[in-house]
Write a protein that binds this DNA or RNA. Structure first.
Lengths: 131, 131
DNA sequence: CTCAATTAAGACCAAATAGGTCTACTATTT
DNA sequence: AAATAGTAGACCTATTTGGTCTTAATTGAG
């Protein structure tokens, strides 16, 4: 439906929340869950995915938690979506491998896809939080 | 996954095919199915949806079929996607009704969404077919 | 060194969506 | 009337997504 998934949406909400606070502060899943009102197991899953995607840094063990891996101004919406959902591609045609069918419409999709990625890359976490 | 559905993809293929031929020619579902290699019931479904969305004109009865409702240069990708999938909205936040949660990230999504719609509106069926 | 807190990995199930097919009906031409 | 096409919508299946749970592995504190 040309829409980001709920998990990605949660990711943005969590990241915006973290960006609005002291960058060095470690946030654990439990506190974030309480602060935002999303169930703990789900929050935990999202944080894990964001960490694997390099958006967050994690610190295991007691007193552990998560923090942004980079300044909020350097984390783009494109990056976040890719971390959670994989490469952005409006159609299979427009994926980085190109269209294996070599169909007529393929070049046009590439163009649209580039525009979409451009829009998403121009938007940083800092822009989105600024609370 | 930020992707159009298969049905929408079929729609583009069918429309591009039709745009590449005499505009007045009526195409019936059976011939289109044979020409493109998509099963008849599926082609039939897609054509029906495109007609309801005002992209195609239909003519019932024997010797009936479908034709473009407008010149290919006036049919945009945005229109086609909306006809099949409903309004384009990256998130619920960015739908035309606005974000009922009134969250921080909402204005940013509006912005991205506008950019995406812009890209899709700048691309016509004529651009995509031109075979 | 042990315990408690916390993330890591991934299995797992349920719900939602999408894909595709089918049947019955209506309209039009011959 | 008969044949051809579109119309409407039900229907089932497969895939994806959402969410939870269990079992590790890691680290700080006493």
């Amino acid at each position: 439906m040309l829409r980001i998934t709920k998990i990605t949406d949660y990711g943005f909400i969590l990241l915006a929340h973290m960006a609005n606070q002291d960058k060095e502060l470690l946030h654990n899943a439990k506190d974030l869950s309480a602060a935002i009102g999303i169930p703990l197991p789900t929050v935990s899953k999202v944080l894990k995915i964001l960490t694997q995607g390099g958006i967050l840094q994690s610190h295991q063990g007691s007193k552990g938690g998560y923090s942004l891996a980079k300044p909020a101004g350097e984390i783009t919406a494109a990056e976040i979506i890719e971390a959670v959902e994989g490469p952005v591609a409006i159609t299979d045609c427009s994926s980085s491998e190109g269209c294996e069918r070599n169909c007529v419409v393929s070049p046009s999709w590439q163009q649209v896809n580039t525009a979409v990625i451009g829009a998403l890359s121009g938007l940083t976490l800092a822009d989105m939080s600024n609370g």
